[in-house]
Design a protein around this nucleic acid. Sequence first.
DNA 1: TTGGCAGGGATTGTATCCAATCTTGGGTGT
DNA 2: ACACCCAAGATTGGATACAATCCCTGCCAA
Lengths: 238, 238
Amino acid sequence: MTITDHKPAHNDRAPEDRAQIIREHFRNAIIERRLAPGTKLSESEVGGLFDVSRTVVRSALQMLALEGLVRSERNRGAFVATPSPDEARQIFSARRLVEPGMAAAACDRVAPADIAAFRTHLRGEAGLMAERGPSARRAEIRASGEFHLLLASVAGNDILYRFLEELTARSSLVIALYGRSGASSCGHDEHQGIVEALEAGDAQRASALMLQHIDHIEADLDLRLTEGLPLSEALHLP
Amino acid sequence: MTITDHKPAHNDRAPEDRAQIIREHFRNAIIERRLAPGTKLSESEVGGLFDVSRTVVRSALQMLALEGLVRSERNRGAFVATPSPDEARQIFSARRLVEPGMAAAACDRVAPADIAAFRTHLRGEAGLMAERGPSARRAEIRASGEFHLLLASVAGNDILYRFLEELTARSSLVIALYGRSGASSCGHDEHQGIVEALEAGDAQRASALMLQHIDHIEADLDLRLTEGLPLSEALHLP
DNA sequence: TTGGCAGGGATTGTATCCAATCTTGGGTGT
DNA sequence: ACACCCAAGATTGGATACAATCCCTGCCAA
């Protein structure tokens, strides 16, 4: 709640852009893993669900396809993306390149109010970790990704924020596909360490911790299996 | 690849997505600065120009809006983007963060064939610099940006490639708006230096040179004027 | 002269309709 | 029995029709 309010300027509350709203719904559903990779997204079905015509659904699906969350095949339809192991490696490679530098940049711009927001967020994460049940787990996954976005917003670059929004969402898909441990919440302790480095104004340390953190997330993946098998996605369909 | 592409008028063998083709045309026109920032892009007009319905034009415009090349205002239409000075700073800040690391990554993966491609590209750049006329200048601008994309492709990360594609295109808009010297071709000599560092396998140096190079490009901008004035874009409209 | 207001024209947003393409199922020939 | 082919159904791609919104112009009043 307090976190989403802190988003950069680009996110104006859409008064009447229904495609954008649908896009957000799918984004959330994918991030929280309520939608499995490979799920077919029929235009008519989605349209009926949101009570809009196929035109606006198509618009929403196209946006999702452009940010890599949906794979759209001509004359066949749209599906929740199933990133290949190679794609997964590229996603994390990009995060390794971007996020440490962004942590350092955030160090230079961080304000006391930001630190307070981080603390609030960390408390929220800790609270969710203590809870039980699938709902809490989903919220935890979501919060875990939002930590990275919070950092990006402190860094104060809307373009990088958008890029990281894309990368974290796709990471969620990757973890859903290749995550080894069910408890793939990217370590809460590491988030805490990064915030401490930020508070201390130690850009070097914040950067190093972020790099390490991303490495840890990727280390939890098993990218060897299901290599090159397109039918693998069928195994995940209900 | 070459500048003069297909003519839009006929619908012969277009099995591919026509929206994508239109998007490419606009991308090229914007990169080569044939389309001035702020230009209105009417759906009907574009549709007539390419002989397609508004549906596919809307699709193309939406893609361009998502990559930041077009600003789309509800019930008002689409316009070629006019990045604000702040936006311009963010674009170059993002490039400073991404490109040096990408140059270093390219160093580790560069093959002899890549070096040859770089050399060919540099020769092309030099040749265009020698030529006279607006056509050559446009090609030079385009080639200048493509150097950075070539580097990204050597780095071997499709996601970062796409991101840089976006950033270089938007940079072209920024230079069109705020470029101080008409000859804002990002220095050919510096490109050459980077290739040499790549060939020597000196990642540190390639990275440093790239950072310096981006700083030089940004130093040629004048971002002080028209600060915070939304009517500034009106000055550029005919 | 200036400010406001209403109407006309133009442009975008959305729904619906038709064509093209893919998938599925059954039937037929070998 | 197996493989192939073809037709029916379903789904997407694209074009058109209609509704909503905005801008501009002209008129009127203070």
